[in-house]
């Protein structure tokens, strides 16, 4: 997995609340059996009209935000379906960090498994960064995972919390499965315990 340490980039403002995973990647693109290639269909139904032309108003279609690597979003980002296609599509487009006042649980976890950092900040901080993001490509944000700080274009800093284990994995690009398999003897021990305790399973 790709590491995430520190990023300075363009942030696209998406003030809408409850942006769900159906919006992030509509279901007609879930028929793939691969992880890659979903970026062109990120936010498909907002981004393109029925004929497949770009909707000029949509933020990621605007020249200033085509290279965005960060999204600043309204609260409860990523609610709805558990589809990991949502972070895959974000990643494939080039988004490496999403900042919001809150995230849906499964989406939040899925981000970490795909090298994307979801940053939770208080509503006022998100509003501040949202204003910053609307300034376009001149207002780059810096996200420093090691220090756990987001820096606005004027130098204002906002620190955020992140689970130490998730941080460690993301900073080092560690694969969860490999880490868990190191604990295989504990899994074996659990299974033999369960055999006597819950013999019907």
């Amino acid at each position: 997995m790709e590491k995430f340490t520190k990023l300075t980039g363009i942030a696209a403002p998406m003030p809408l609340v409850n942006i769900d995973t159906d919006m992030i990647i509509p279901k007609q693109f879930l028929k793939t059996i691969k992880r890659s290639g979903l970026g062109v269909n990120l936010f498909d139904e907002m981004r393109y009209d029925r004929e497949g032309n770009e909707v000029p108003d949509f933020v990621l279609n605007q020249p200033a935000y085509r290279e965005a690597e960060i999204i600043v979003a309204g609260e409860n980002f990523g609610c709805g379906s558990s589809r990991e296609h949502a972070p895959w599509a974000l990643k494939d487009f080039g988004i490496k960090c999403v900042i919001s006042a809150s995230f849906a649980d499964i989406f939040y976890n899925n981000c970490f498994k795909n090298g994307i950092l979801p940053v939770v900040l208080p509503a006022e901080a998100v509003t501040y960064l949202m204003d910053d993001a609307t300034k376009g490509a001149n207002a780059r944000l810096t996200v420093d995972l090691d220090k756990q700080v987001v820096t606005a274009s004027d130098g204002t800093e906002f620190s955020f919390e992140v689970d130490p284990f998730k941080k460690h994995c993301l900073m080092n690009g560690l694969d969860d499965i490999g880490l868990s398999l190191e604990k295989v003897s504990a899994i074996d021990a659990y299974e033999s315990r369960a055999k006597t305790q819950f013999p019907w399973l």
């Binding site: 379906s81 589809r83 990991e84 498994k113 499965i177 868990s180 398999l181």
Partner: peptide
């Protein structure tokens, strides 16, 4: 790998949806 796994909670089981990376994790490690 589906958010409506919560359905099974009706039996007093702890049931929840997971993403595809977690599906792989469970397949490999249970």
């Amino acid at each position: 790998g589906d958010s409506h796994t919560a359905t099974h909670g009706a039996f007093g089981s702890l049931a929840h949806g997971i993403g595809t990376s977690e599906v792989e994790h469970v397949l490999a490690t249970q």
